[in-house]
Nucleic acid binder design. Structure first.
Lengths: 344, 344
DNA sequence: TTACGCAATTCAATCGATTGAACCAATGCG
DNA sequence: CGCATTGGTTCAATCGATTGAATTGCGTAA
């Protein structure tokens, strides 16, 4: 069955040189239409397959782009993946995919490997706790201008483009909505200190509370993983306290879904007995029971902008790094409602 | 800032030849320990980065594996992605990722590109409607032994390994569970004719109905997309019929979640007024309101087995293709319960 | 001393595509 | 008719790592 045909195979068949074939297959106008067609026809019948290793070796670009996520179980992140894969495929680039799973080591390994593969750029949702050197260190000093775009999470003092959501605005919108409905006893569920997202949302929450003249204490803020289980067990715990909150703001829709599950088991009606809000507005938020009030993070726009920025960098754009902050939108559904009248 | 160092750079620094460096960096015993260490130290300080294009060109293997999904919005599929990425990374292989989004064209484009990239193998969840030639055609005749493993969905008469769930068994388990609870008026929601999964589940449902002496007519089976919206609107429609079902079996958890949402709005208590079951048992099934009875498809085992098979093929295994059928498990939760007493 | 074996290293060809320079023939123009 | 142009194609070097064969140097057995 012979080996895979190469430019040489075609060249011999058609009776021209390898150079002519190379040029013809890329529609270079230097080759006459007649021979170009003969060459292309021959390539087709021989079943020629372009060898990107050879091309990449010579040209130094493999036509790939690397993308690294760290939480596949959170549909919010896979939304990014879909948006970006589509855009890169349109641009004729393949995607090298990595899943760091919140591990700095895995992230570092991925970055090294994707450089070995000659990826032209990297889009990264940095692992929690990533610092500047975790990204630059692996890429080494020979890659000073290597295009990197961070999305969703910010890492300060990095020389990279970043496209993130306006988390402060999102929390503000949620708080104002709930405050306007009469709520005064708030709880914040989820997040922590490790990601910019968690920090920003929590800070905004605290500021909103202060601005409204409400106090923030140990009972107000509860850190934890972004999981259904966390939301579920935390609500259980809150119900045990003397004065349960009337509004529960969750760091992520995922946590809010867990809260809704616990509410259901306890016969609590979210939106009536208790208001629950999420964050991200993933697709499922419109179909939870009840439908979840959330903040729509524009993953499509963020993904698009990130692809654009990366594209520009790969094309040689050397302007100083940009920090794009994408405004989100409040989406009011049934899980939030007027504060219940205080019984006392 | 100089170019990226190559073997040559190191060779000159250390005072040996390129060959020696190449061998030393791969720990070849032909190079003495002393020089090997000198070489490796030099590589480290120079910040040498392995060039896989050059190596791949010479050796013909790029160290990548391609994986193509087609529905990122369904967490069921991203579970596979996570399992497999982890296994390939451990094996030192990067993953070329594609998202066919149920488009045959995109899938074909992906397969062509990944061959160009010299991927060593392919794991594919074939797009609905894929036929034998859609896979083989793009790979062309020079790749007869190219390793391909299909997961989740079967394509008949293909010369590839396949790892799929035992869908017939899963449906049987669900049906028996519901029948045992006294249900007699069933409805099947979702699927269609395009994927083996949909066909197998539906066929098993029909057979179970017949075996139980129940008739299947136009009102029993409703095809549709695997989306929350489909489940939601279909339940609305069913409620409008004269004699609504007491048990709704959904092709996928995703559809079931949509059904639960509609139930909630109508004040129907799933598990009491109506039994609802899903399929796949994705993570969220345990946290819906109420928690969803489903069939756990072992994405972990399927992903693992698929990786193993692909690994064996890449290592040269030429045994005839295998068809692995993984048994699922019934998971009973709160969305299913005894059939309500018929009011008539 | 010669020859041999062995370890360590080098030589040199190779993988397949790209590209700037060179070449050739035909045409146009003065 | 000679010279410049230009369209079409070829030449030849190049990218960086790999590898089977060849070479070198050295100790040791004959």
């Amino acid at each position: 069955m012979g080996r895979r045909p190469t430019l040489k195979t075609i060249a011999e068949e058609v009776g021209v040189t390898v150079s002519a074939v190379s040029l013809a297959l890329r529609d270079d106008p230097r080759i006459s239409v007649a021979t170009r067609e003969r060459i292309q026809r021959s390539a087709a019948t021989l079943g020629y397959v372009y060898n990107r290793h050879a091309a990449g070796l010579r040209r130094g670009d493999s036509g790939t782009v690397a993308v690294c996520l760290n939480d596949l179980s959170n549909p919010f992140f896979t939304e990014f993946l879909g948006h970006m894969e589509a855009r890169f495929r349109e641009a004729g680039r393949m995607m090298l995919f990595g899943h760091a799973n919140e591990s700095l080591d895995v992230q570092a390994q991925f970055i090294r490997q994707m450089v070995e593969h000659g990826a032209a750029g990297l889009i990264l949702i940095p692992v929690a706790g990533t610092r500047r050197d975790d990204i630059a260190g692996e890429r080494a000093r020979h890659l000073e201008n290597f295009p990197v775009v961070l999305i969703s999470r910010d890492v300060e003092q990095t020389p990279y483009d970043r496209v993130i959501n306006d988390d402060a605005l999102g929390v503000q919108l949620l708080f104002d909505h709930l405050y306007g409905l009469g709520h005064r006893r708030f709880v914040w569920l989820g997040g922590g200190k490790e990601t910019s997202t968690a920090r920003d949302r929590e800070r905004a929450f605290i500021e909103a509370m202060r601005a409204a003249g409400l106090s923030v204490d140990d009972e107000t803020i509860h850190h934890g993983p972004t999981s259904l289980a966390f939301g579920d067990t935390m609500l259980e715990r809150l119900l045990g306290t003397g004065e349960p909150p009337t509004a529960v703001l969750c760091f992520s829709d995922v946590i809010a879904f867990g809260v809704l599950a616990a509410c259901y088991r306890h016969g609590l009606r979210p939106g009536v007995d208790l208001s629950v809000t999420g964050f991200d507005d993933m697709g499922a938020a419109a179909y939870s029971s009840p439908a979840l009030t959330s903040v729509r993070v524009r993953t499509d726009r963020i993904g698009q902008r990130a692809s654009e920025l990366l594209g520009a960098r790969m094309a040689g754009d050397r302007r100083p790094p940009e920090r794009v902050v994408m405004p989100p939108e409040l989406v009011v559904r049934d899980s939030s409602g007027p504060a219940p009248v205080t019984r006392r």
